[in-house]
């Protein structure tokens, strides 16, 4: 399924995956190129109002399959709200959300997960009292088909299922760099390990789309670089589409194929990183009007 964008494909995609699109850099070209890959997640005029506060105002975003799509914006711009809306944690005020053409509106979060979306949280929300591997097994819940009475009777299918799940969980554990630490309590892991374990738990649901909410919050530059490499590895190894909320511009610029900028719930810019970086509305949103005026004294 991975139609990796050109930039990442050349550097990271497994050999044998033929480039489907050739060299592009400019914004217009970028958009054209995206047109080749189908849209996986689409929000249409998505609005979310909490009482008098409009957290999201007619936001339309297309996330194409196989890309890393960053959502950036100042604090309170509505980024996390967007995630919550996609996950159907909030009942949206108006608009539409589709995953591969299927409407998500009105589903419960577990159905959204079943449709193929998994997410992580800005403040890590692991199940802290259980071990790392148990956290992953919870993520695998959806894929274990044995019923509760089979567990009671310890049926062979159930045991087989459990063994398979454990094996798969150990694989994921290895992938997130926690090989051999499966029996450690989640809360006893270091901060970076917890971040990666949370991503691993999301991967256990076998999503098509992975939504990462500030995976580098509170990390130092070295850890940020590691996380960046890790995110790319996740995409390559699982053929995923990733939506990323980030504050770290370095990470956003290096890792993203496409960037959407939100400010006060409104989409103010969208395009490839280079385009967004130079967009005047974005600079204004981040630095305010004064900076804008200084740069363009006319």
């Amino acid at each position: 399924m991975a139609v990796a964008s050109e930039k990442t494909r050349s550097a990271y995609a497994p050999a044998g995956l033929k480039p489907m699109i050739t060299q592009t850099i400019a914004t217009e070209h970028f958009n054209k190129r995206q047109g080749a890959a189908p849209v996986l997640l689409r929000t249409v005029d998505l609005s979310m109002r909490f009482g008098g506060l409009t957290a999201l105002d007619r936001v339309s975003i297309d996330v194409h399959q196989g890309v890393i799509h960053s959502v950036i914006g100042p604090n309170g711009a509505g980024k996390t709200t967007l995630f919550n809306c996609v996950m159907q944690g909030h009942r949206i005020s108006s608009g539409d959300i589709q995953l591969a053409g299927e409407r998500l509106i009105g589903l419960t979060p577990d159905k959204v997960a079943a449709a193929g979306i998994a997410r992580t949280y800005q403040n890590i929300r692991l199940f802290t009292g259980i071990t790392a591997i148990e956290n992953l097994l919870v993520g695998m819940h959806r894929h274990l088909k044995s019923r509760w009475w089979e567990a009671v009777l310890a049926s062979s299918r159930c045991r087989h299922d459990e063994e398979k799940a454990h094996a798969e969980a150990r694989e994921i554990l290895k992938f997130v760099g926690l090989a051999g630490r499966g029996d450690t309590l989640a809360r006893h892991l270091s901060y970076g390990d917890q971040r990666r374990l949370e991503i691993g738990r999301a991967l256990c649901t076998r999503p098509k789309l992975l939504m990462l909410d500030e995976p580098t919050a509170g990390m130092n530059p070295r850890e940020i670089t590691e996380m960046m490499i890790f995110i790319r590895r996740v995409r390559e190894a699982f053929g995923l589409t990733i939506v990323l909320i980030e504050h770290q511009m370095r990470l956003v610029m290096e890792v993203s194929d496409k960037v959407t900028v939100l400010d006060h719930g409104v989409k103010i810019a969208e395009g490839d990183p280079a385009y967004v970086k130079s967009n005047s509305a974005v600079i204004e949103a981040y630095l305010g009007h004064a900076a804008q005026r200084q740069e363009h004294p006319a």
Binding site: G89, D110, A118, R142, C204
Partner: peptide
Amino acid sequence: DVAQALGINL
């Protein structure tokens, strides 16, 4: 909430 987002039918 997290349990539900992981696909567990509450």
